[in-house]
């Protein structure tokens, strides 16, 4: 499976080192449908290929939107791409968020840092009304206010959903919460029989959030989280993303907590 050639049509620096790219297939017939929570393998010429989830609207149909933090060689090369530059794309891969299970429920979206990227696709979808949900709450934690993704858009949406922001550190005026995300999560009242939670962020953050959720009697079957591991092929052949019996690339990246709890509790798995 070789990458299709895409071009950068729009580049937006979210904050230093993190960019959002809109990319479009060079051959216009390249389909770009995906399910929120899925990912593509993005190839930076001569440097390598990494998994990056879609952060745009699944209804867009106008290429893909990816948000990339410059960290290693490949992500740096991708983040350095300019409008008009070519990028290789394989995908979409993996299982996304279980939208069918959100229908009619109170949806709790919990994002940490860059974990907002695959969750924004989900928010787009839920705001579009398919499936219809009875309530949408978004809890978003980041290190600092300057490192919050899509803030303008999230605040604009806050007329149609509840938005709770939290940062580890803030200087000057900051209307949101300061501290870890479990603070506001702890205060949120949750109807355990009618709530579904979607989490993406650092593993340690998800671990603590799940503790709070289960303490509030939310069943493990109503908690979904997106996992990250090293990936080379995305097709279950390279072996890198194994996590217990799971291949993150094809069995995930989104898992129901009930099914993976025993693996989630094992360190260095």
């Amino acid at each position: 499976m070789i990458p299709a050639i895409f071009r950068v049509e729009e580049r937006n620096e979210e904050f230093a080192g993190t960019v959002t790219l809109r990319i479009r297939g060079e051959a216009r017939e390249v389909p770009t449908e995906f399910n929120p929570g899925q990912f593509n393998m993005l190839y930076a010429f001569g440097t390598g290929e990494i998994p990056i989830s879609m952060s745009g609207s699944p209804a867009d149909g106008n290429g893909y939107i990816h948000t990339i933090r410059s960290h290693g060689f490949v992500s740096r090369a991708l983040a350095d791409l300019r409008v008009g530059d070519a990028v290789g794309v394989r995908g979409p891969f993996g299982r996304g968020w279980p939208l069918d299970q959100a229908a009619g429920k109170e949806v709790l979206v919990i994002a940490g840092g860059l974990g907002m990227a695959p969750l924004r696709s989900l928010i787009y979808r839920l705001l579009s009304g398919t499936p219809e949900v009875s309530r949408l709450r978004v809890l978003y934690g980041a290190r600092r206010p300057q490192e919050m993704l899509f803030l303008t858009e999230l605040e604009y949406w806050s007329r149609r959903m509840e938005l709770i922001l939290s940062v580890d550190h803030a200087e000057g005026e900051w209307p949101g919460h300061i501290g870890v995300i479990t603070g506001p999560l702890d205060k949120a009242e949750i109807d355990p029989d009618n709530t579904i939670a979607f989490l993406c962020g650092p593993e340690v953050m998800m671990r603590f959030c799940i503790q709070v959720l289960t303490a509030k009697a939310l069943p493990e079957s109503a908690i979904f989280l997106s996992m990250e591991r090293n990936m080379k092929c995305a097709t279950g052949h390279c072996g890198h993303c194994q996590w217990g019996p799971n291949f993150i690339c094809k069995n995930g990246p989104v898992f129901c907590y009930e099914g993976i709890r025993r693996w989630f509790d094992i360190r260095a798995l």
């Binding site: 001569g46 390598g48 290929e49 092929c233």
Partner: peptide, 19 residues
């Protein structure tokens, strides 16, 4: 055992790459 990895390289011109 089936695990594999990939290596991406370019030549000195930067115009030709291999995986």
């Amino acid at each position: 055992c089936f695990c594999s990895t990939v290596e991406d390289t370019t030549d000195l011109t930067g115009e030709h790459a291999e995986r």
